[in-house]
């Protein structure tokens, strides 16, 4: 199995451990990820906040690169990048006038056959949980976690077309297949406000504080997420020291892949004490 892969800018910076664990896990699963050549930034929230056309043309260039790479569906780990690429795909598929304008500016012809998939979607629906379970060497037995989806993966559902927007289950199902125990809680899709992290710290602290304390109240020992911005924001703006994992890291733990120490060193709140207490290091 082979996919083209869009790492996104945070792969080299704030979510280093997400990229490292993703590659380790996919290697174990025997699935090849082919990085698209000379990709550019998706534009992120900043671009669609101030320039609509630019926010479509920047992702479109990546779509054109993925088309020409012919390495299969385009897989996107970062929730923010996924959302931007899907927004563009939505316009390319549904608005002929805008599609022509984008194609002309970027200099390509859109092929609707190219699929754009979230990393989690690939694991659940292309690779399958049976194959994931086959690779589990150390089940995450007894680990209580809160699955946090945030915004960009599930909303707007007409764009992302992924899971239920009010009570998504993808992460919960994946974590159960690794042997962990996802808790029931009401804040899995609440926004953590990461976009305002640098400009409105006080507001973000309140939003993060509520999410983290509610996870703890629901009995979770940690939060697991699939978004680089959410992970960094939840780790840096909370005050109770609850570890925040990427889902690929916990897959790596369950698969018992090598060189995991490097991932934990990148965390602001070290998850090592928790993993040690569970006998998972």
């Amino acid at each position: 199995m082979r996919f083209s892969f869009f790492p996104g800018c945070t792969d080299h910076s704030t979510s280093l451990e997400y990229g490292l664990s993703t590659h380790a896990v996919f290697k174990t699963l025997g699935v090849e990820l082919v990085e698209i050549e000379d990709w550019n930034c998706c534009g992120a929230a900043a671009t669609h906040s101030i320039n609509h056309l630019l926010s479509l043309c920047l992702p479109a260039r990546n779509i054109s690169k993925a088309q020409s790479s012919q390495a299969g569906p385009l897989v996107v780990p970062c929730a923010g990048c996924f959302n931007m690429l899907k927004r563009t795909e939505h316009v390319l598929k549904n608005d002929e006038a805008e599609r022509k304008e984008i194609e002309e500016i970027v200099g390509f012809t859109y092929q609707p056959s190219l699929e754009i998939l979230a990393l989690m979607d690939v694991i659940l629906n292309r690779i399958g949980l049976e194959k994931v379970q086959e690779k589990v060497k150390k089940p995450l037995k007894g680990l209580k976690l809160a699955c946090y989806y945030g915004c960009a993966l599930v909303r707007h559902p007409k764009i992302t077309q992924l899971d239920d927007p009010e009570n998504p289950q993808y992460l919960d199902r994946l974590m159960k297949s690794l042997g962990a125990e996802p808790v029931e809680w009401s804040y899995k899709i609440d926004c953590c406000g990461a976009d305002l992290a640098l400009t409105y710290g006080e507001v973000v602290k309140k939003l993060v504080g509520r999410i983290v304390s509610m996870a703890k109240e629901a009995g979770a020992q940690c939060i697991v997420t699939s978004c680089g911005l959410c992970q960094a924001n939840l780790e840096m703006r909370q005050e109770i020291g609850l570890p925040i994992f990427y889902f690929t890291e916990l897959m790596g733990v369950a698969f018992d892949v090598e060189k995991r120490d490097g991932w934990w060193k990148k965390h602001m709140i070290s998850p090592k004490p928790l993993l040690e207490s569970m006998g998972l290091v």
């Binding site: 900043a46 906040s49 630019l54 400009t199 409105y200």
Partner: peptide, 24 residues
């Protein structure tokens, strides 16, 4: 009205303009 939010968006977009990717 929220000057800094706008300025951060601008700084982010200009970073993409310079290198094609964001350099934090």
């Amino acid at each position: 009205r929220e000057k800094n939010i706008h300025l951060l968006h601008e700084a982010f977009v200009q970073s993409i303009r310079r290198g094609g990717r964001v350099h934090e």
